[in-house]
Design a protein around this nucleic acid. Sequence first.
DNA 1: GTGTGGTTCAAAT
DNA 2: TGAACCACAC
Length: 331
Amino acid sequence: MGISGLLPLLKSIQVNKHLSDFEGQTLAVDAYVWLHRGVYAYAYVWLHRGVYACATDLATGKKTTKYVDYAMHRVRLLRHHKIQPYVVLDGGPLPAKKGTETERRQRRAENLAKANALAAQGKHSQAREFYVKCVDVTPQMAYQFIKALRTEGVQYVVAPYEADAQMAYLERIGLVDGIITEDSDLLVFGCRKVLFKLDSVSSTITSISRVDFGSVTAAEGGISLLGWTDSQFRAMAILSGCDYLPSIPGVGLKTAWSLLRKHRTVEQLVRALRLEGKKPVPKGYLEAYRLAEKVFLHQRVYCPLEEKLVSLTEVPAQDVMDAETEAYIGR
DNA sequence: GTGTGGTTCAAAT
DNA sequence: TGAACCACAC
Ligand SMILES: [Mn+2]
């Protein structure tokens, strides 16, 4: 899901770069995106050839590991431009994302059912498009990718939970110079340099830098982020709705932005909204907000230097971490 | 007019 | 995942 509408809002600071601009740098790579696209591409090709077995079976990695080629092609492309890839894979499910994941699983099941129904009616071309929609990246596929990475001596790490937080940590401690992903969440995790939309044909990529946030213009009905702190930016994103917390109905990025200009703290903001009574603030929203904030700040990640699990950012001593919170952000 | 939220589509060898 | 599009409410 990411933060809906965030990238268009930051349009004015998106910079098109060539991969050669990153020569000599180490870039974290969100493995999920490449694997998913690889699986998608090959599932599509197989189905085109008339292989109408269940798409989820097709992609288990038993019959083929072709999807790995797609990802490795991109790994080699980075290396060709003298960029050192640091591949980051997703780990276990984060309790905080439970809602999002059950939703996805449901959608995949729906698409599979539709596909099977259409196939049963002999409508194979229509069935194909639904089969393609239920492809999923399995741990087995991730393992096939890891084997290829090992063979070619590419650095990688499996995150204890989300790759997002893991990549943010690698950048934070200086192990990577930037992050290649398609997920706008990385900006909310406080990353300094995030690279989107890698085009392997032209070797170009779209860059968004934290230092440019202040230049986000209020022109054309947009918003201004001049003088905004990481904390305020994060608040705007969470209030607008994120993977860890749905928004208050009727509140999107722009409303969150103007609310945060009026109120100094989220407590005051929520109190004012409740007093006004125009937007339905759910019961327990503020508590849920605090938890979401902690997931962005303190999610559990693996430190390759210390070789142990740590928090993305250190938890302040006065912050109480009860068992529920611990479970939520990973332990 | 503005902003939100829902739907639909593309994704690539 | 995002982008594009559109209907709806304010
Ligand atoms: Mn994410």
